Simulated assay, not measured.
Amino acid sequence: MTSQRKLRIGVQLQPQHAEYAQIRDAVQRAEDLGVDVAFNWDHFYPLYGEPEGKHFECWTMLAAWAEQTSRVEIGALVTCNSYRKPQLLADMARTVDHISDGRLILGMGSGWFEKDYDEYGYDFKTAGKRLDDLRDSLPLVKERLGKLNPAPTRAIPVLIGGGGEKKTLKLVAQYADIWHTFVGGSELDHKLEVLKKHCANVGRDFAEIEISAGVGGRGRDGKQPRTPEDEGQALVDQGVTLLTVGVGGPDYDLSMVEKYVAWRDQLSA
């Protein structure tokens, strides 16, 4: 599969196990390196390492990044739909969109980290019900974005993360500008075919959706990350055009990010 889209490199700066000064420094270094998108994530506790370790909130951080940066797009990978009313989320997104002069990506997902829900008093529900809630929220977000004054500076791109074939990929076909996944190989090929069928069923042009994937992380078996030339190229050959490296605190080692940026520039030279 080939694509006419420009290859983009993102970084997910995971806001855990770090002082905010270290996160601030990391997003500045990432922009200076030349990344296209800087993401954080929407959780209240670390996802790995010390479970009660340092952690910061997603959307207040995005507002700070909007002022601190000047070129990169910013967003959550991804916002948990359960934590905010859809109309409020739309207003928050519109506000960060203006602060950033039109550089926000609105990443959304149904949520999955039960500790967040339990500790902050949200109803965890079932996975299916959380997806139904996301389904119900997406049109409300879109509706509120159309009512706000001032309006967003642009049609804010919506990113949806997840790979469920019956519900999530249908929502991608209906609402997303970007689909984010962590799978590759034959599994990715299969899910792309499923997404194409959903697009055909809802009358959506599949080519309108940018395909995004996470790269560069260590597997659960502790193996070293693969290189851009093998992992990245394989995904690009499948049609992925946004490749995002996840980086944790407190040191925020951007060496793999730097390799992906250099590879991107080499390909476009």
Rank of each mutant, 00 (worst) to 15 (best):
A173F: 02
S268G: 05
Q266S: 15
D133L: 11
Q238C: 03
K197H: 14
G53D: 01
S212D: 15
L104K: 02
Y122T: 09
G232M: 02
Q87N: 08
Q16L: 04
G184F: 07
D91I: 05
D230A: 11
S137A: 15
F56L: 14
G128Q: 09
V194M: 04
T126H: 09
V183R: 08
G161C: 02
G222K: 10
A26Y: 00
L62P: 00
K196T: 05
A127D: 13
A38T: 11
L138E: 06
G128M: 09
F206C: 10
A176I: 03
E57P: 01
L106P: 04
D118V: 11
G203P: 05
A93P: 07
Q14H: 10
L242K: 06
V194K: 01
Q68M: 15
E229V: 03
S212P: 13
P46Q: 06
E208F: 01
D205Y: 10
E193V: 01
Q16R: 02
T241H: 12
Q22F: 02
R29N: 03
E31Y: 00
D221V: 10
T126S: 15
K197G: 12
F182I: 04
K170V: 00
V257F: 00
W65G: 02
G216N: 06
E187Y: 12
E208R: 11
Y20K: 00
R5G: 08
K223G: 12
R144H: 08
L235T: 07
M256Y: 08
E143V: 00
R226A: 12
T2Q: 13
G34L: 07
K85V: 12
S110N: 10
I99V: 09
D253N: 15
V11R: 01
V35L: 00
L47D: 09
G102P: 05
Q87K: 07
L242V: 13
G109L: 01
T95N: 10
E258S: 10
L104D: 02
G75F: 03
E193A: 11
C58Y: 00
T244G: 03
Y252N: 07
S100Y: 05
H98I: 13
G146E: 04
L242S: 11
E208M: 09
R103I: 03
H55C: 13
R24Y: 15
T95H: 12
E57H: 07
Q233R: 11
Y120G: 05
I156P: 02
K85D: 09
D118T: 13
H180G: 08
G217A: 10
H98T: 10
A38W: 00
R226S: 11
D136K: 08
G107E: 11
S137M: 05
Y120S: 12
A18I: 05
I74G: 02
A151T: 11
T168Y: 03
Y48E: 14
R154D: 10
T153W: 06
P51K: 06
Y48S: 11
N149S: 14
H98R: 12
D118C: 10
H180T: 13
V236A: 14
L192C: 01
C199M: 04
G219T: 14
P157I: 09
E143D: 09
H98Y: 06
T69A: 06
K259Q: 14
N40I: 14
G222S: 09
D91F: 03
V257Q: 02
T241M: 15
D97F: 04
R144G: 05
